[in-house]
């Protein structure tokens, strides 16, 4: 959907009467100029800063940054966390979108708002709530301590905080889309005797595929990039509980700007990886 117009479509549009006027091309160029200008100042310039600093001492130093043991541990931890959080939240997102988009029930707006809530919660608070629950002074603190289970200042805490922060993304992407698409085709499939799962996989999924991909991409990007909430529950133990964003901060604070921005650049590349895969799939289909 967000993939943009196809060649045929563009050609067809161009051939329509009244399309190719002076004003419409003026509007087009003004829009493109505004978009590029805005993005250049706000997005490309900071991104360029990241990459230029990362490469300021040459490619060799850039790759050297990734040989550090703690950096590797941070990359591993971030990938592990994303590997747990993204699938879990995807399943939740699909289930929630099915319940909310396909059925009418009371309190629906309330439920949607609760799903949105983690976006609005300050990352500091997202971390704090888990400290209040599982910290030594927290609700379950004593119980956990007696059983020698660590949740905060260990990997489970990081997973939970990340899950909290990235909770809404898949659901948020799917709900409006599925509402827009309506129930007719699914109802037809069920009437014709298809089972629930079969209907979902053969009727619904193909229609929501790209929306789902976008949701997963956003969820994944946020999961890998989350800093504030994770910083509260991590304990900052080098090589053990530092994720990539935390490691970036550590390196930056050590005046190792090349290393810090190298890790940051890798993070951005990881996040677009999913996007690149999506583009490849799209291209193949054509």
């Amino acid at each position: 959907m967000a993939g943009g117009p196809s060649k045929e479509m563009l050609a067809e549009i161009a051939s329509r009467p009244g399309r190719d006027t002076l004003i419409s091309s003026a509007v087009k160029y003004v829009f493109i100029a505004l978009s590029l200008g805005f993005l250049a100042a706000l997005l490309f310039a900071p991104l360029a800063t990241v990459f230029i600093t990362a490469l300021s001492k040459g490619w060799e130093m850039y790759f050297e940054s990734f040989k550090d043991e703690d950096t590797l541990a941070a990359i591993k931890l971030t990938l592990t966390v994303a590997a747990i959080v993204v699938p879990t939240n995807t399943i939740f997102g699909i289930a929630a979108a099915w319940a909310i988009a396909k059925f009418e029930f009371r309190g629906k707006s309330f439920l949607i708002t609760l799903i949105d809530l983690p976006i609005a919660v300050s990352p500091v608070i997202s971390g704090l709530v888990y400290v209040l629950l599982f910290g030594a002074q927290g609700w379950f603190g004593l119980w956990l301590q007696e059983r020698d289970i660590s949740i905060i200042f260990a990997v489970p805490g990081i997973v939970l905080a990340t899950m909290f922060v990235t909770f809404p993304y898949v659901a948020r992407e799917l709900i409006p889309l599925m509402q827009q698409l309506g129930n007719d085709e699914e109802e037809a499939a069920i009437t014709l005797g298809a089972g629930g799962l079969m209907t979902f996989f053969h009727v619904t999924l193909p229609k929501i595929r790209w929306g789902l991909v976008y949701g997963v991409i956003l969820c994944n990007a946020r999961a890998m990039g989350e800093f504030g909430a994770v910083s509260v529950v991590s304990g900052h133990v080098r090589g053990l509980t530092t994720t990539m964003p935390l490691h970036v901060e550590i390196l930056y604070n050590e005046y190792n700007f090349v290393g810090a921005f190298a890790v940051a650049s890798l993070l951005t590349l990881l996040a677009v990886l999913t996007l690149i895969i999506k583009s490849l799939v799209e291209m193949k289909r054509k």
Partner: peptide, 27 residues
């Protein structure tokens, strides 16, 4: 612009839109 117009670099820009999510906020 991204949906309606075709111009060089559109795909790249489209894929960069999500960057603010992936960049750690501190960065």
């Amino acid at each position: 612009t991204l949906v309606r117009y075709e111009f060089p670099g559109r795909k790249l820009i489209d894929s960069l839109i999500d960057m603010p999510f992936a960049l750690p906020t501190a960065v």
